[in-house]
């Protein structure tokens, strides 16, 4: 049977209930919390500040460092706290997703530290992390060319759906894994893509449909980020 109705009753292009807020970590220079359904990410930005040790400084432009971390209670089975291979990879791709919009050339010799913590996970944690981090960077007063929004698009059998949940990620058809997970991060004005990953299988022809769905979802998410930032006084 094909996947025609979603497990939680959403339309195929409908996002989970999303909320956002800035200024949640009082000691950070900038911070934000972003919630997509049961996935909650909190991002804190420290800096721009001087980078030590000095040999890591770049006299041409600033350095952006991202630390992604899943808290041990964020998933059903407790995960070992600390850095893992997975968290290192996500830190790196998040850094690459954020770096093109941050005007690091205006801050030579400095470092901007971004700490992303996942309080609760139900798929799409790297996307929620990027959404929170973009808002936290804006709150920290770091000069940015645009905003970034990210969403996980999925293919269930042959149906394209937006903002997948864990249940959908594990979707099976005839006892075989039939779900594909495609996280996309898109810039708000130029609609350039800064993150595109693919876990599973996808026909090349479908890619256009996936990117269309990603663009629509990112636009909706950008609206939420914008409203949350404008509420900051």
């Amino acid at each position: 049977m094909a996947y025609t109705k979603r497990f939680d009753g959403r339309k195929t292009d409908e996002l989970r209930e999303t909320s956002a807020k800035v200024g949640v970590v009082p000691n950070a220079d900038g911070s934000a919390i972003f919630q997509q359904g049961d996935t909650i990410a909190i991002a804190a930005v420290y800096g721009p500040k001087i980078l030590h040790p000095k040999n890591q400084q770049n006299p041409e432009k600033g350095v952006l460092r991202v630390h992604y971390n899943m808290l041990s209670f964020s998933v059903g089975e407790r995960i070992k706290p600390g850095v893992s291979r997975r968290s290192q990879e996500i830190s790196k791709v998040t850094e690459w997703a954020l770096a093109p919009v941050v005007m690091l050339e205006e801050l030579p010799g400095t470092v901007i530290d971004v700490h992303i913590n996942i309080l609760q996970a139900n798929a799409g944690t790297r996307c929620a992390g990027i959404n929170a981090a973009a808002m936290a960077l804006a709150h920290a007063g770091v000069p940015m060319k645009e905003m970034i929004s990210a969403v996980a698009i999925g293919q269930m059998g042959t149906t394209i759906v937006s903002d997948v949940t864990k249940e959908e990620e594990d979707y099976e058809e005839d006892g075989e894994k039939a779900a594909t997970d495609i996280p996309i991060a898109m810039l708000s004005n130029s609609e350039k893509i800064t993150l595109l990953q693919l876990d599973g299988q996808l026909p090349v022809k479908k890619m256009k449909e996936v990117l269309e769905a990603g663009r629509d979802a990112c636009k909706k998410l950008h609206e939420i980020q914008k409203n949350a930032l404008k509420e900051y006084k």
């Binding site: 220079d29 900038g30 804006a138 940015m144 645009e146 930032l229």
Partner: peptide, 23 residues
């Protein structure tokens, strides 16, 4: 476009943003 979170101030020909947060 603005590059920071702030308040817009337009005078005759010039437009600038007064930041609200950050270091």
């Amino acid at each position: 476009i603005s590059t920071r979170l702030g308040i817009v101030e337009k005078s005759d020909k010039l437009v600038k943003v007064i930041p609200l947060s950050g270091v």
